[in-house]
Design a protein around this nucleic acid. Structure first.
Length: 922
DNA sequence: GATCCGACAGCTG
DNA sequence: CAGCTGTCGGATC
């Protein structure tokens, strides 16, 4: 169940008559428990309650009680030994009139009337396996409102399918935005009389709903008609009280789709919520899902949490404003100058969605301005921060519409907060007519047109800089001479997942500048456009992006271009996990990149709860000089030749499990000699056996006589033919061969391509001549053992962890990026002998613990002392070769490696591709 | 011919 | 059901 379905289920539950016996089960069912789970609880098998209630292990202890005994009952639940024993997360007591619950982990409590408990459903979301950021679970209103609007939206489309077509989508989106505005307005006295809009619709529309659309259309028309024009426009008396709202919101057609009885009741139901509680920053990103067919129900899928937004905005400019406020003290003149500065600041989000970042930036700036006004003794003073200084571009129509509305609501709420309801109301209407959120494709628009710099003749230059300049935006900023800050969380998409349109977007931005750009993530185009904008206007930018543009091969593609635009990484936040309300969370690891062309002397590198100042931040987001490592097809140093393992592309038919292998041999003993041991990352690290069918061309005739093998080859052929990949297609005619197969009876040193970041050393292993290593590992065939000493060293791990790509934050080993670029001093014969000895000692130490796996042996908590000692000796010997002593720490290791890499690439002819060393600000 | 990556994906405790 | 940790094969060079 998703959040929308849960909201609906508990809303229904709260409206039903209270049934003491049934309630606990109904409650659990509403939170998505399966029928069988409920059945087992009813039967008592899994019910651990010692108080006659219902206790679900690891979840909740519920007890209903006599009227008036709720508080005592909750206390009893808390004291119950069974609650603790079953590790309940929540306790809940109710008598049908009152409702109390506690989150035992956090100690937070809920106490409300029974009928109101759905208002707190965010509190219980963990019960449904939905973990969420605090802002969302604390703002149940936004979820409930979204959920109800969602139902209304779906119901309206059901009765008015033409409103769902591409031509009418905009009208539909507009309708939703207008309704949201009306709900907000009627609860905040913008409309005279609480609930005025909903009530008017309820009274004036027939119970059978037949004229609901006409009533709403009339109200919309009133809101689009100035007082003096109303008589002429024949606005009926019952609509007279509704103010002239204007704005792009109510102009442009007032057609409304027909409402079924159900749709009408949904509408009244949505209006019944208390819309004063709306949170424009959260609500917007949730409501945008309503209009997306694929996303409907997945509330807040693209929600950027407020802490994450502040990770961007604080270091970008808010921290500085606050510091200046601090410095100003009570000096009225300095405060005035700061207020003037704030009023001229432009914030621009080129992928603004429903305006998340813009709303937060606006609210934070209003807070600072309010403090200035308070200190200057002008608490009632109107804000000088114009909403139109908060500009955005959004591809989708609905969020673009919502973003403007969210800003309007934020402005009103800030006015109420800082100046009082009366002053807020006095100046709220009519809304500004302009639209300062552009609906369009940010990678195809000229940002200088959407967010023009001040005091320059942009038009001419813009034509030089961008391929597709748009017409100048209609409205000018009220910020002559002000600063501009670009921010946001643009879309990420790796090259494989990009749509044709996204690839074309990438081509427009990158093709003129770079030959090989197609492996870049989509978000890289936003980073580059921001860098270009910064360079041209002196703006500064900060985005949340996927961490992959700061890792591996993408670094050498993107960053030289960014540095060429004279940008510096002024601040950055290293990898952190994305989190939102979606039950299947977006599995993505993010970073924050702050760029500017006017850096101060200090760079700030943020981690999880840490900040460090440094002289430079490299594109790998380490505090080091900017050295960019480019992948090579052969080794920079005189070390072994490493290559990819053997790639089957077989749909599983060439790589049977142990069971399948046994079946094959049982069916045809002749097949035995074509089965080899097969290892990938997983088998190298965790042990366990896998098998592959390995057939030399000469044996094909014999294989074809073995039915069970021939059948498998036929399946491989089919799989390769039906694949979208060219290489798979080409190899369909030779299904007995792996599509990439360097192996033929070689022993090898194998390194898993993906492994956990927690280990202190890279996993690596020797494989026998009869083992095939898969494409999930890299191999050096017939290699001298000292190569393993290099791979197993701390130095190598530090290098790999910095310059290779990653899967989330885990280590991803690459021969071209990591091994071939690894700088090693010239090794003497003696060095090689010493290192070989070290490698042997490591292997021997491992053997002492047979049959422990690499995962067991290298568990950072439980590494055996002898293995640890062998690695220490290995590091000692290798590091002495580098600098004649042990390195002090990883920073020093990295410094030396980058230094050596720079020297070696400068002197040696590059193997392939260009070497690059960019200064911090080349 | 070779490889790097995945707004991921599958397993397990 | 969330924490953990690495498959598989396509797109790209």
């Amino acid at each position: 169940m998703n959040a929308v379905e849960i909201e609906q289920a508990i809303t229904d539950l709260a409206e039903q008559p209270f049934d003491r016996a049934e309630f606990p089960y109904a409650f659990l069912e509403a939170f998505g428990n399966k029928a069988t789970t409920i059945k087992r609880l009813r039967a008592g098998a899994s019910n651990k309650s010692d108080l006659g209630g219902v206790l679900q292990t690891s979840n909740i202890h519920i007890l209903t009680c006599d009227v008036g005994r709720v508080t005592q009952t909750l206390a009893a639940l808390k004291a119950s030994p069974a609650t603790a024993k079953a590790k309940a997360k929540f306790i809940l007591a109710t008598d049908g009139a009152d409702f109390e619950a506690e989150d035992l982990a956090s100690g937070e409590t809920v106490a409300c009337a029974f009928k109101d408990f759905p208002d707190h459903f965010g509190f219980f979301l963990p019960l449904a396996g939905i973990s969420t950021v605090r802002q969302i679970s604390e703002n149940a209103f936004d979820i409930r409102a979204t959920s109800r609007l969602n139902r209304l939206y779906v119901e309206l489309l059901k009765d008015n399918p033409e409103w769902g077509t591409a031509e009418r989508r905009h009208d539909m989106n507009k309708l939703m935005a207008r309704l949201i505005f009306c709900f907000f307005a009627e609860d905040t006295d913008i409309f005279i009389g609480k609930g005025r809009f909903t009530e008017t619709v309820a009274q004036m529309s027939a119970k059978d709903s037949s004229n609901t659309h006409e009533v709403i259309a009339t109200l919309f028309r009133a809101m689009n008609t100035k007082r003096e024009d109303r008589a002429a426009a024949k606005i009926p008396r019952w609509a007279e009280d509704f103010p002239y709202v204007n704005g792009a919101l109510f102009s442009g057609g007032d057609e409304v789709p027909r409402f079924s009885k159900i749709a009408r009741s949904y509408l009244l139901h949505v209006g019944g919520l208390d819309w004063t509680k709306i949170n424009p920053d959260i609500f917007g990103s949730m409501i945008q899902a309503v209009a997306e067919d694929e996303e409907r129900g997945e509330l807040g899928m693209h929600y950027t949490s407020v802490p994450n937004i502040l990770k961007v905005l604080n270091p970008l400019f808010l921290d500085d404003l606050r510091a200046k406020l601090e410095e100003a003290g009570d000096n009225a003149r300095v405060l005035l100058n700061l207020r003037k500065r704030i009023a001229k600041i432009r914030v621009f989000d080129p992928a603004c969605g429903s305006g998340n970042f813009l709303v937060i930036a606006y609210k934070e700036m209003r807070a600072i301005e309010a403090e200035i006004n308070r200190r200057r003794g002008e608490p009632d003073r109107a804000s000088e921060i114009p909403l139109t200084n908060f500009r955005g571009i959004e591809l989708r129509d609905f969020p673009a519409e919502i973003a403007r509305l969210a800003l309007v609501i934020a402005e009103y709420q800030c006015d109420v907060l800082y100046r009082g309801q009366k002053l807020a109301l006095a100046e709220f209407l009519p809304l500004r007519n302009e639209n300062w959120i552009t609906c369009g494709n940010a990678l195809r628009l000229d940002w200088l047109s959407v967010c023009p710099p001040t005091g320059t003749d942009v038009k001419v230059l813009a034509d030089d800089l961008f391929e597709t300049p748009l017409d100048q935006a209609e409205i000018d900023f009220e910020n002559e001479g002000g600063e501009t800050y670009i921010c946001g969380n643009p879309p990420y998409q790796g090259s494989v997942g990009q749509t044709a349109q996204q690839k074309e977007d990438m081509a427009r931005v990158l093709a003129p500048l770079l030959k090989t750009y197609k492996d870049l993530d989509y978000v890289a185009a936003f980073v580059l456009k921001a860098a270009q904008f910064n360079n041209f206007t002196g703006a500064a930018s900060a985005f949340v992006t996927t961490n992959s543009i700061t890792q591996g091969e993408q670094v050498a593609m993107l960053w030289p271009l960014v540095f060429k635009e004279c940008n510096t990484i002024n601040f950055a936040h290293t990898s952190f996990l994305w989190s939102n309300l979606a039950s299947n969370k977006a599995a993505v690891t993010c970073v924050i990149l702050g760029l500017t062309t006017n850096p101060g002397s200090e760079r700030k590198l943020f981690g999880e709860g840490t900040v460090r100042s440094c002289a430079n931040i490299s594109p790998y987001l380490v505090a080091a000089d900017t050295v960019i490592v480019t992948k090579r097809s052969s080794a920079l140093s005189a070390i072994g030749h490493m290559q990819s393992g053997n790639k089957p592309t077989d749909g599983g038919h060439l790589t049977p499990s142990t069971e399948e292998k046994d079946q094959i041999i049982a069916a045809s003993p002749d097949a035995r000699r074509f089965l080899k041991r097969y290892v990938g990352s997983r088998e190298l690290i965790n042990g366990g056996a896998r098998w592959c069918i390995w057939i030399e061309d000469d044996d094909l005739e014999e294989v074809n006589r073995i039915d069970i093998l021939r059948d498998r080859l036929e399946k491989v052929r089919e799989m390769r033919l039906s694949s979208n990949g060219a290489q798979a297609n080409e190899n369909a005619a030779t299904p007995h061969r792996f599509v990439f197969a360097p192996h033929s009876r070689h022993a090898a040193i194998a390194v898993p391509n993906v492994s956990s970041e927690r280990r202190l050393f890279l996993p690596c292993e020797i494989t026998g001549y009869d083992t095939v290593v898969s494409n999930l590992a890299s191999v050096i065939y017939d290699a001298p053992l000292w190569n393993l000493a290099l791979i197993a060293s701390r130095l190598h791990l530090v290098w790999i962890a910095t310059v290779c790509g990653r899967l989330k934050t885990d280590i991803r080993y690459s021969n071209t990026l990591g091994w071939n670029t690894f700088p090693v001093p010239t090794l003497t014969d003696k060095n090689k002998v010493d290192l070989t000895r070290c490698a042997e000692d490591i292997l021997l130490a491992r053997e002492h613990h047979f049959p422990a796996t690499i995962a067991d042996l290298y568990d950072p908590e439980n590494m055996p002392a002898d293995l640890r000692a062998a690695h220490d000796r290995n590091d000692e010997v290798l590091e002495r070769i580098y600098i004649g002593r042990r390195f002090k720490n990883d920073t020093e290791r990295l410094e030396k490696l980058f230094d050596l890499y720079t020297k070696m690439t400068a002197s040696a002819a590059p193997a392939k591709g260009k070497k690059r060393k960019a200064g911090a600000n080349a």
